[in-house]
Amino acid sequence: MFSNIRPLIGVLALQGDFREHLETLEFMGENCCLVKDINSLNQIDALIIPGGESTTLSKLSKAFDLFEPIRNRIQSGLPTYGSCAGMIMLADEILEPASGQESFGGIPMLVRRNAFGSQVESFEQDLDIAGLTYFGNDKSASTKYRGVFIRAPWVEKVAPEVEIMASVEKTGVSHPVMVRYKNLLATSFHPEITADSRIHGFFVDELVKKARV
């Protein structure tokens, strides 16, 4: 480890619930900041892409000249976590994208936007997350995690090397809703609007801090 022991985790703040991600990181005592421009992007050691509207995030990051820089940093190994719209932004392929919509990419998967339907179909339910007992000191802690899905995407197809950490069954078919691949983590659901910080904890411990040792 170097003099700056605590990595700086940035939250992309173009649009969406970036403040909730920031508050979760602050609650955990992490070193964190909002990312709105190229200067802050260059300073961070890890990135969170928040929930929001994926179409809007895609268009704004291009309009504000952040699209290529973010894509490049992700490709060169920046630990990055995306929730909901963030998951879409981390997918190599988007099924039926809006006109002009592109993702940063990084995870070899195909995502379907608004996969569960419109807002009236949005839901919450308990998820079984593979390896969740790992988190925290309490090994006996529940493996259940309350997933909040809001106009959420799911993973339609995924390369075999991508680790599927949780899935949701819909009409007899299992759809991945949490995946990990190299430096990247993505969830269809929104841990940031719950009081449960275990997903953020997993990201920081497994993807951010281990990457620096």
Binding site: A13, L14, Q15, G16, D17, F18, R19, E20, G51, G52, E53, T56, C84, A85, Q119, V120, S122, F123, E124, V148, F149, I150, R151, H190, I193, T194
Partner: peptide
């Protein structure tokens, strides 16, 4: 249709 799902939808629109 829970309060969290309904209020959360608006959270995703923030800054927009």
């Amino acid at each position: 249709g829970t309060a969290r799902v309904k209020r959360g939808m608006a959270e995703m629109l923030k800054g927009g």
